[in-house]
Design a protein around this nucleic acid. Structure first.
Lengths: 229, 229
DNA sequence: CAATGAACGAACTAGCTAGTTAATAGTAGG
DNA sequence: CCTACTATTAACTAGCTAGTTCGTTCATTG
């Protein structure tokens, strides 16, 4: 992450010294933009859209608030950019599943476990999604890249399911989206609702000591369901 | 600022005067308080804590903003009151499960379906819980009635589970909280994440036409898991 | 029925917050 | 090295927002 070590001299109106010590901040549109986006992601994920403060985001970058408006246009567009960025970073689970070299049961379990790991390692993405749902996805629906957002993992899931059904191993009254929903439910709930769950039941669903238990449990849950009877 | 001392005037049941002129607004502390709480619940569930506006809440009641501070002390206390109220309204599923007259499998399915129905019919409760999780349960943990919040349904679940295990029907590597988590995951995800899910996959998880499918699916999911092998 | 305190309302305020202005410094192209 | 454009900064502002002030009205009670 970029930290603002080089910087300072707000009032150094003095002409740039001949000797460039490297201390002077170089102009770099891409870097400035990226830094704003990164800090904004943290702030929005932390406080929500309404709770986030543009001034706070600016303060945590090495640049100024004016740059936020220069590059993004406004708070809402910045939020959308952070959300879109989070979605685009999160994708690509399907590439890690070696579908065709695993039997359907193992493939499903593997996909579920990858989803599980993925959610656990991207807490900010999950928080942004929760926040966006509070807003009834009003920002997401405006996104230009919405059509490309559909998780490719669902397609992979569909193909595995088909193979499993063809082999007579899987039930045929659910589709890929249903199964995806079950897997997501479990993973999302575990991280998104961890705080109230812990407050009420005194059990931390993200306790590393329970991690393997939940991981196996999710796999069993999906497999037992698909192969029942 | 010391003003906020909460009036502990309990339900000093205002003896209703016989002569009810009707049109003139009667003074009624209990009713005013209840009205504020109800409107606040809607506003907070709708916009989140930071997004909610005290002025807006006041405007939607038949009283004024002053009364909010008079009865609740401030925005945060009002929010907590709304959250606590939502939790207390939501409880009591366990009473509807006739545990002892159903075999373990049927009892579990019944409990799951009741939870399913419960979540579907209390969307605002779910939204408040999501919002509170965004805030990392910082308000809930301050609540005095936190100790009494643990869902009694979990106890009922525990007893059913025990019977099922004793009968050799259920697996024994999961406890009541684990099963509760699975059931809640499904129900919560379906309503709390419906918006982004719909935006991305064009499937409304709350479509009445799919309701029975999901209800049965949840029952199968839990039962197949518990009775597997 | 007077006194006392609970219940109420209108208007006010201090501080915050998204968004803007206007001027300046670096940089690329000629 | 000049011109035109991009990147950047500090300071500003209009409007909002939680919380308050102060005065009034109603209803109970001694």
């Amino acid at each position: 992450m970029v930290n603002g070590t080089l910087r300072s001299t707000p009032g150094s109106v003095v002409a740039a010294p001949t000797s460039d010590t490297g201390e002077a901040r170089q102009r770099d549109a891409e870097r400035t933009r990226a830094e704003i986006l990164e800090v904004a992601t943290l702030e929005f994920a932390d406080k929500g859209y309404a709770g986030a403060r543009v001034d706070e985001i600016a303060a945590r970058t090495s640049t100024t608030k004016r740059m936020i408006y220069y590059y993004f246009g406004g708070k809402e567009q910045l939020y959308l950019a952070a959300l879109e960025n989070a979605y685009s970073v999160i994708r690509g689970i399907e590439g890690e599943v070696d579908v065709d070299h695993l039997d359907p049961v193992s493939a499903i379990r593997r996909l579920a476990e990858l989803t599980f790991d993925h959610h656990e390692s991207h807490p900010n993405f999950l928080r942004l999604v929760s926040i966006e749902n509070i807003h009834r996805a009003e920002h997401l629906t405006k996104s230009d890249l919405l059509p490309r957002l559909a998780d490719p993992a669902v397609d992979v899931l569909g193909r595995i399911l088909e193979r499993g059904r063809a082999a007579g191993q899987f039930r045929d009254d659910v589709d890929a989206l249903d199964v995806h929903m079950v897997i997501s439910s479990f993973c999302v709930f575990r991280t998104a609702n961890r705080y109230t769950f812990q407050a009420i039941f005194q059990r931390d669903m993200l306790d590393p000591a329970r991690r393997d238990h939940y991981r196996r449990m999710l796999g069993d849950l999906v497999i037992d369901f698909l192969t029942a009877r």
